[in-house]
Write a protein that binds this DNA or RNA. Structure first.
Lengths: 203, 203
DNA sequence: ACGTCAACTTGCCAATGACAAGTTCTACAC
DNA sequence: GTGTAGAACTTGTCATTGGCAAGTTGACGT
């Protein structure tokens, strides 16, 4: 057993991942380097490889942490809306997804735009699945609430996942039609998820 | 005036962009390099910079071409469904978006996952807008068909853009719940866009 | 023929990713 | 307390890369 601040540096892996977050924020995901992360953590140029294997390994570790945070954020939104209509809860989970992308953009960028291929990193894939599980739970909730028997639940899951991920991507890229500030992003979030409300019925 | 095959190489810019497509397909968007593109085009290591300025410039040129193809694909789908109900046309345009992502993945990857920031490349931004214009036209069509007066057209645009982009991203990443082959991707496409059909009314 | 200018080439440098071969510290056995 | 195994790092090196400066080549108008 050892406390979280041990060994030479203390907790190098965490320090390196924190450095990655800073680098992405400052210079973009394309400019992350093992050496720059090492420099910011105050260690030698090849220390990162010792912990993460290679550059993609470091990004994968960062992405994994991102999926865990995303899962926790969505789970919190799900929990906070217990008792509400299932469609509202689904909207809350979707909103948490978009908020995660906007509030933790470095994570979002590494998770989806860094070119790491998920299939080759099992633990990333697993943590991604654990985030998806929250959304699936919310969809199952909706289905079991009844009244949607004609809807395929797998389609509904992909539908919400797509909507949330697409909206998050557009928001992060600032690709909305006409310029929009933080306030109107909120408006789009409620507008887009509200659209679904209108579609599936008033609950 | 000069024909498209002139000067020393013939048409280096196009040859380089073709090389980029191959590199992305073979090694992923993270492994594109000016020098490898030059090698495949059979020119010296710094020839690409002469045409594109720098690496990001080359990727931006490639992305611009991608947005033009995307716009043309969506416009073709829009044109081919003239006379159909507006909601069907919108589904056709969205389907064209997802098909573009699946059939021309190298373009999709560079356009959305290469870390180039659109705002700093005006012509990329413009060609992106011209693609979005097709979708906006389809939404306007739907609005003017009547019966949706309570819907905000900007929200509806962002809604479809999000849905199409999100579904395309999931499909390319193979992040669907449970494994799915090409056939079931088709099923998800019709399922997800059909969901909207159910929501907005039967036309 | 001549000049001009675009289309390249050659040569260079700092930075990077990856690897090999060390060195230092920790924990645990005895 | 001493030794020893192994984890946590360092140092050194190499091929590759992006970018720049300074050439060279060839097409075109006059």
């Amino acid at each position: 057993m050892q406390d979280s601040a041990a060994y030479h540096h203390g907790d190098l892996p965490n320090a390196l991942l924190a450095a990655v977050a800073d680098i992405v924020k400052e210079n973009g995901v394309a400019n992350v380097s093992l050496r720059e992360a090492a420099r910011r953590a105050g260690v030698s140029h090849s220390a990162p490889a010792h912990h993460f294997g290679d550059k993609e390994g470091m990004l994968a570790a960062f992405a994994e942490r991102g999926f865990e945070i995303l899962r926790d954020d969505m789970a919190a939104a799900f929990g906070a809306t217990a008792g509400s209509p299932a469609l509202d809860r689904l909207g809350a989970v979707g909103t948490a997804y978009v908020r995660f992308a906007l509030d933790r953009t470095p994570y979002f960028d590494v998770m989806f735009r860094s070119g790491i291929d998920k299939p080759s990193h099992q633990h990333v894939h697993d943590s991604s699945d654990s985030a998806l599980a929250v959304l699936i739970a919310a969809v199952d909730d909706l289905m079991s609430e009844g009244g949607y028997s004609e809807v395929d639940s797998r389609h509904l899951t992909v539908y919400f996942w797509s909507l949330a991920h697409g909206l998050a991507s557009l928001a992060v890229d600032k690709s909305m039609p006409s310029d929009l500030d933080e306030v109107s992003i909120e408006e789009y979030i409620t507008g887009v998820f509200g659209m679904t409300q209108g579609i599936l019925g008033t609950g």
